[in-house]
Design a protein around this nucleic acid. Structure first.
Lengths: 208, 208
DNA sequence: GCGTGTGAACACCTTCACAGCA
DNA sequence: TGCTGTGAAGGTGTTCACACGC
């Protein structure tokens, strides 16, 4: 079972489960049933069990799951076992906000870059902003494989190309643009306005 | 066809199509085929046609779609015909970044609120930050039906409750917390770290 | 001939329901 | 008995492939 490809939908839910498990662990809970965990994560219990089954069998029938064990196992499958150095480009408000959120394990902010000479050298979210021209050097020395784009949309493609050129193979894009990347580079775009538009759609169709 | 419920997956793609259509319109393009449009939006042409078919038939066989007509029709179905006043709570870096992005049509930033006395009264993203205690007053006077949460996670639920109490029925949450809302309130949570975790998962499974 | 619109096939994802083990 | 793990069923979303109209 654990050798097939894990569904994308499952992967998207794992971080949720991990967050809930951490909260439960903080509360001192030892074991948890699929029903409880699912409720806290906002999904059906059968779906939770199905999701977990892709990674192995963790539970004890009649009892439930050991909170810390499950968190550790799940985390290791999701890459929480290793540390992920990141390069973040764009130190505006969005970049600064992301820098703060992306400084928690297993992620590690290797560098925060920008092109604006007025903010290069200043500190944002506890890290000194470096000049974007040092990108490939930074990638080489830190071994960062993930790049985050938080630049204005018109410079996003150029930034993306620079990231690819310097050897980054996974890119998370927050600029509202469709980016082109070569084969083999993993790109994920988060469009903040799009989320609002989805909400507006539902809102305007309430009266059905 | 247009009377059934539109799939959530389709709705999530419409903003993409609209963005591409706008770009094409700016470039002076008059008509576009489903193949071109789909390519630019990063989907299969058949999927694009299927998506459009939920809203009506817009194309001309053998020719394609009229760019401006399609954009207008699609936009009207998605709520772009009316204006959406928003209330944004949390004027930190994230809130400020969102405020700027959420000030474009059809959205209108009715108010930017915070609890921190040091930033209340200052300007962020072109709007003066108001005290959060004025929330229900602001909602009442502006008629805002959408609220955006950009506060720290520990105050997010309280903020959410306040939004609901003041009459907001759609909430977009950027705090990494699972929020509870009463029946009838539409909640959408965007977890920025989660996106990064999904990327890390794929990255750590490259060697399959 | 070309490209849309769509029935039908397919793939993916979720839920049901229950066997099996603590 | 209680809860997990999972075959089987059901539902949702995507792709195929082609009839139809320009």
């Amino acid at each position: 079972m654990s050798n097939e490809t894990v569904p994308a939908a499952t992967i998207a839910r794992i971080p949720n489960y991990l967050r809930v498990l951490s909260r439960l662990a903080d509360q001192g809970k030892i074991t948890v049933s699929s029903a409880e965990l699912a409720q806290a994560a906002g999904v059906q219990s059968a779906l939770l069990r199905r999701d977990l089954s892709w990674f192995g069998t963790f539970g004890t029938r009649g009892v439930g799951y050991d909170v810390t064990t499950l968190r550790a196992s799940l985390g290791s499958h999701v890459g929480a076992a290793q540390s992920w150095p990141l390069v973040l480009i764009g130190a505006g408000n969005l970049g600064t906000a992301l820098a703060r959120q992306f400084s928690q394990p297993p992620f590690e902010l290797a560098a925060l870059l920008d092109v604006d000479p007025r903010i290069i050298g200043t500190k944002r979210a506890g890290i000194t902003v470096q000049c974007q021209t040092t990108l490939s050097e930074v990638v080489a020395t830190t071994g960062a494989s993930i790049g985050v784009i938080a630049t204005p949309p018109d410079t996003a493609q150029g930034t993306c190309d620079a990231l690819v050129a310097s050897g980054v193979v996974s890119i998370l894009n927050f600029a509202p643009t469709l980016l082109q990347v070569p084969q083999g580079v993993l790109l994920r775009t988060v469009d903040l306005v799009q989320e609002l538009q989805i909400l507006a759609f539902h809102e305007s169709h309430r009266a059905l």
